[in-house]
Design a protein around this nucleic acid. Structure first.
Lengths: 411, 411
DNA sequence: CTCTTTTTTTCGAGCCTCGAAAAAAATAAT
DNA sequence: ATTATTTTTTTCGAGGCTCGAAAAAAAGAG
């Protein structure tokens, strides 16, 4: 922050800016790029010429809307899909998936598998992860070199984005996935929190709604959160942070999976809804593995008649509402996306949630709050990972600090 | 964010960087500046020459430590105290103060007065503010033009930093102090939250401890908070945000001044401590104006023997602890400064506070948490305001976007 | 009084962006 | 069919900025 700007930074940053503009616009003309970056046409001309000669961009003559206008037609440029390849891995409860993605963001190959994450040994979990990566790499020999791996995992990651510090999906803590995978494959690896990737994915998918400030809440086994503030992904100072689900809703209240008492998750997680619906004591852990199917069944009952099921969803909505209200007290109201299977029961939790928010400081500008739901979180996580990896390539590899981009020129 | 960097931005930013380096270092040599900014000696030479000729910096031959070293002695540069003048105003409960500050940050003149803010009409409150500013300006005719006014006020301000949206010190809401003062004096005005200025002041005073991430909690009539994350002051998306005191500690719990139930302030504010110590019902407002003196007396009793007074402080500590723990769940542990008169009772609240934090997700890395106390908040707020105003001058006036700095050259 | 050391300035080279003008590539008009 | 018009893109020179190398400046050491 205290460091001056050197002359070569200029070109570096403007290169990254042009790449970013192309990534967002898809097939912009040079004029379009000049408009969005506020750089002069001459500068854009020079930079795009460089990027094309380096194989990062390609011209695609067929402008999507030639529209028979007068004048020299625009020549669209787009990302060269072959300029780079990245790999995403998503590790979540009982599920492991990976995908090979080209520079334009299209999926080249994919693999998904079920595995009992809670029961696997540390080594077995690591081996599964290494294995799925290896299979994808081996299956695409023409896609070498792969330039980046991004692994999203449900749990707390460190702020260097290298380790899984703690996760509800495995009893093992402090797994240095970056070191392991980098040693194995020689490719830079980033480890990310799944909800943070959901936030990145949401912004990519709908930049109108999810722009400068928004919140993504994942309702699943546990409660996760990702947040973008002032256009930047919010993280903790030492970890991925944003442990919304473990903010205390009621001091010394219901027992949480994490061992503490009164966490939001202990009222709104799958197991908590089950516990309340079945009238089990809230001071005791839930032995049963509560599935999405269980929750769906409870929701059906809750919709059909008043009773403990409906009350369980009310309690869940209330806990989330107070949590969001407290968050709004800190950051002010912002658009919220309710993601994950729990979004299917949003009709049951919405009213108690809004009632709770209205009882908090965040309820003052409740008009500014709006909710959207997305029951399937996996595609969002994958898209978020892909964007994270591609943004890294755009900035660090194709707009590097020192010499000209060493990126392989691929036809 | 999406906008490219132009060529003239370069010099602008590097100018600001040099000024900032001088402001932080005090009396650095050109070599020192080159080291901290990572710019070349030639560039620093050129920029400092400009700044000196514009009267923003001055050489001060008497290097503070000539130290009889070999070689050409360093020539220190420092800020020209006469380069600009700014004005700070602090409006808090029953108190209004203002100060005229030179470009080096030294106070030129000051005025403080008591006034019953809660009882004043909107017009009277505005008139008092205009009056104190006018008196300071009139009393220093040689200090024209004053380049910036920063007003810190206890309460919620808007994110454009122009209005007081709501405040506990007055029943009147939505006071556009910026518009009023700018119309009156023709000087740009910024309206800030007092706790945010405390955070800025803390960083200025002790940059070692209060660096990239820290939290300032003001314990007074109410509970306020200012926070710096990743080196930047944290604010809400639409307001000053950080309404820590109005996060809900216990849903539907004790009645808060704000009219809601269960806010942290309703357990830890002066009036809440009084209410609990005197055994008054927590569902009723406190009629009495609880003073710092009252709290001091309660604290003395609490220290001398067990009883409701000690319990009241325990409850306050617990509420703050759960609040901080929830904050730490979001941002991870960070150094905390307990500011304001409540810091005098820190010995009473520390233990219950730490106990509460240990019961939250923030307690996991409790080793990373450290507390410091500062009972007198007013000097910090003033310093924060001064720094805010001076930083603005450094960046916007003396490193302007377009033409060369129009700053008056003052000998 | 000369040599050494350190700081600061000077000067030319190399980039970068910009504006203006030219070139390119299409449609519209004659 | 040819010329005029319009819009996009490239070219080219000007102006700024930072940098490195060398020179100048300003001291103490010998």
């Amino acid at each position: 922050m205290t460091v001056g700007i050197r002359h070569d930074d200029l070109r570096r940053r403007n290169r990254a800016m042009v790449i970013s503009a192309v990534r967002r616009a898809g097939q912009p003309s040079r004029t379009d790029i000049a408009a969005t970056t506020a750089l002069s046409p001459s500068t854009i001309s020079a930079i795009t010429a460089d990027l094309i000669s380096e194989g990062i961009l390609v011209e695609s003559r067929a402008g999507d809307a030639p529209a028979a206008r007068r004048g020299r037609p625009q020549v669209a440029v787009r990302l060269n899909a072959n300029a780079a390849t990245i790999l995403t891995v998503v590790l979540s409860m009982n599920q492991l998936s990976a995908a090979l993605i080209d520079y334009a963001g299209e999926t080249i190959a994919e693999e998904r598998r079920k595995l009992p994450t809670l029961e696997l040994s540390r080594e077995a979990l690591v081996d599964e992860t290494v294995g799925i990566v290896r299979r994808l790499i081996v299956a695409a020999p023409d896609r070498q070199p792969i330039m980046r791996i991004v692994l999203a995992v449900q749990g707390i990651t460190d702020s260097n984005e290298r380790k899984l510090l703690w996760s509800p999906i495995t009893p093992h803590a402090d797994i240095d996935f970056s070191a392991i995978l980098e040693k194995e494959f020689g490719i830079p690896v980033t480890v990310e929190n799944d909800c943070n990737m959901i936030a990145v994915g949401l912004r990519w998918r709908n930049p109108e709604r999810y722009a400068r400030d928004f919140i993504a809440v994942l309702l699943s086994h546990g409660i996760g959160m990702g947040m973008v503030l002032r256009g930047e992904l919010f993280t903790g100072t030492q970890s991925s942070g944003g442990e919304f689900g473990h903010m205390i809703h009621r001091p010394d209240g219901a027992l949480c999976r994490c061992g503490r008492r009164g966490c939001i998750e202990a009222y709104a997680g799958n197991y908590a809804i089950w516990r309340n619906a079945k009238g089990l004591p809230e001071t005791e852990a839930v032995a049963r593995d509560v599935t999405d199917e269980d929750i769906r069944a409870l929701a059906d009952v809750a919709r059909s008649r008043p009773g403990p099921e409906r009350e369980a969803f009310r309690i869940a909505g209330e806990a989330i509402g107070f949590g969001l209200g407290n968050l709004f007290a800190l950051i002010d109201p912002a658009p919220v996306a309710i993601v994950g299977h729990g979004a299917n029961a949003f009709d049951l939790i919405e009213k108690p949630m809004l009632d709770a928010i209205a009882r908090t400081a965040g309820g003052v500008h409740s008009g500014a709050i709006s909710f959207d739901t997305e029951p399937d979180e996996m595609p969002l996580i994958r898209e978020g990972c892909a964007m994270r990896a591609l943004t890294f390539i755009d900035q660090e590899v194709f707009s590097p600090a020192q010499t000209a981009a060493p990126g392989r020129i691929v036809a």
